[in-house]
Write a protein that binds this DNA or RNA. Structure first.
Lengths: 125, 125
DNA sequence: AATCAAATTAACCGCATGGTTAATTAACCA
DNA sequence: TGGTTAATTAACCATGCGGTTAATTTGATT
């Protein structure tokens, strides 16, 4: 079996499963309620397999209620995956900042050299 | 082929690939440099396949330099995946807030009833 | 007890994925 | 031109995944 983070990302790598999570963000739902929007595209067992993937990844919990299985989002399970990605998002923002201040510095120099004559400049990739 | 977001999550669902991304966050690297830490566990072609997955997902770009292929992170490609997860992270924080204010309200009531007699209270799961 | 409803399990299928080794391409070096 | 290095492509294999239908479990209803 894979590590938890890999399991979570793998679970998220499917539109059906993401749609189920979206539905669950509106509140608790039974397996058939969750499956219903997909029953024209896939069978019930296929839907319960998707739910099992989400459950094993820890993103969803199931509780018994008579013959119904009620599913809930496990919101705190999203945290580590979110943290992982925010790390790269932060790097991106920092690079944007650097680009911003660079452009600004170029602009300042421009204004200075504009006192003589303006010329083209390159930007870095 | 799958949608972009699914491809990105799928690409992230592998420890080898995440390690490659981590290496790239330190800066540009060639295929062999990226593969080197894994060559005792897998062959070079396996490593280049992983890189191709990252490239197809848009997380990494390759540029030619003589016979070397230099790889770079495409940091802005992490944004949509990060946004997706932050949505759930936000829901979690909101639920924590609600729990907090609830506990606080219970506490206030407690203090009121404490004027008579104090007793244990339960917290919800 | 019989049946109905909700969901899972079993058994199977096709295809993608992650790996292998061997062969090939591409660019440099001498 | 011939050799070396860097990387990819080809051909193949095992395993896992997403789907199917049919059978089974589980609990409620009557």
């Amino acid at each position: 079996m894979q590590d938890q983070l890999s399991q979570k990302f793998a679970a998220l790598a499917d539109p059906t499963r993401r749609a189920m999570l979206a539905r669950l963000s509106l509140g608790q739902a039974s397996v058939s309620e969750l499956a219903e929007p997909f029953l024209e595209q896939m069978s019930l067992p296929a839907a319960t397999k998707h739910l099992k993937v989400l459950e094993k990844a820890g993103l969803v919990t199931k509780t018994h209620d008579a013959q119904r299985r009620l599913c809930d989002l496990k919101l705190d399970a999203f945290e580590d995956a979110a943290d992982y990605l925010n790390q790269y998002r932060t790097m991106w923002e920092e690079s944007l900042d650097r680009l911003g201040t660079y452009l600004q510095s170029v602009n300042v120099k421009d204004k200075q050299s504009n006192k003589k004559k303006a010329h083209g400049r390159k930007k870095q990739s």
